[in-house]
Design a protein around this nucleic acid. Structure first.
Lengths: 196, 196
DNA sequence: GAAAATAATTGACATTTATCAACGCTTTTT
DNA sequence: AAAAAGCGTTGATAAATGTCAATTATTTTC
């Protein structure tokens, strides 16, 4: 099974309309396999995000760096997730984020131009795309709600329920940053939780 | 000028494709004018959000209420903004939010069914809708980034820059809740800022 | 296998923010 | 006009979280 088959499977899980074999060929042509070594950048701050990627294998993170040089993780991504800076990719503006591989990663990437010209017209993709956009919005809203409403401890619980896989794949200090707390604080939260 | 003209103006500002007069008629039929008195609910917790609204005049807020009875404001809306609980409206699931009028408000509301059947097919609306969805996502991402990265003081500055109108339209304790801090904290932040 | 890098923990202390209560001012209601 | 509700402020104190430094364990690299 080639790398693209993972993507075909994924699409068929979201879209009722099946892909024709011509459409599959198109997808094979516009999604280019790419391997990233651990720590390698997919996107660097200040650059326009030219690609959107589908992760076949591996783990990645998105983060910004503040004036003090501290990294703030805003996104985590693993197998079967899409990775891109949506604003930069859509508006062709320089990104304020970095995206890099946390583990050695295999992905399928597609350019902005190919997305518009070849991918978006495919009916199954339109279905998929609508659903992904919706889910993405709902997820963002939930994270925001949690960050306004909940304590650090509660936010950790929410994350552990929503994405338990993350806790396996990323070290605690990365999770801490994703939650907007320091690694020391998260460490204490976890050790308190264990005692219960 | 009727209430719907505000909406037509708004649409023409976002969409290159103009509305035909048939489409305008359709819009007049599916968007029903509705007046809300101050404090009146547009949506209550536990209920499916049946409508999406375009605010012609007034100001509204979205919030949840926690176990202790404290309100957490997650959204603020004024003239020319859309108001709905997108997740509830789209998925037909009960909402966890309340939405009410902060001022006496006039809006145009459309049901889920009419949105699908009559509104979405209009080309100008498809353009508009794509842009609104994008902008909404970008805005959510920015708020989330700010809430992970910034102190309360910085978050207030970010808000004051992004939506200065809000500071005029909503009292400080509402802004505080929107930022995820108590009214006392925001009061102190503001008085410190004045001294500089 | 040794050295280096990465990760998690802990303690002492500082800072930020929340909580609770009281007060004064303004606006709204009656 | 009086009463009530809403709003912003301030002080005292508590709780949550951050900062800095040291220590240890674990994993990776050479």
């Amino acid at each position: 099974m080639g790398t693209h088959d993972t993507l075909f499977d994924y699409i068929s899980r979201y879209a009722a309309t099946p892909l024709t074999s011509e459409e599959k060929d198109t997808i094979r042509q516009v999604f280019l396999p790419k391997k990233l070594r651990k720590k390698q950048y997919f996107l660097q701050e200040g650059v326009v995000c030219k690609y959107s990627g589908f992760i076949v294998k591996g783990a990645m993170r998105q983060y910004s760096v503040d004036e003090k040089g501290v990294e703030h993780v805003t996104g985590l991504f693993i197998e079967n997730w899409w990775v891109t800076d949506l604003e930069s990719f859509t508006m062709l503006t320089p990104s304020i984020y970095n995206i890099d591989a946390w583990e050695d990663t295999e992905l399928l990437q597609i350019s902005q131009a190919d997305t518009l010209a070849y991918l978006n017209p495919i009916p199954a993709i339109q279905e998929l795309s609508k659903q992904l956009t919706d889910n993405h919005t709902f997820a963002l809203h939930k994270r925001l709600h949690s960050s306004i409403t909940d304590s650090a401890e509660k936010r950790y619980e929410v994350l552990a329920n929503a994405y338990p896989e993350f806790l396996q794949r990323f070290p605690q200090h990365v999770i801490a940053s994703y939650l907007g707390v320091t690694k020391e604080t998260l460490s204490r939260i976890c050790s308190r939780a264990v005692r219960k």
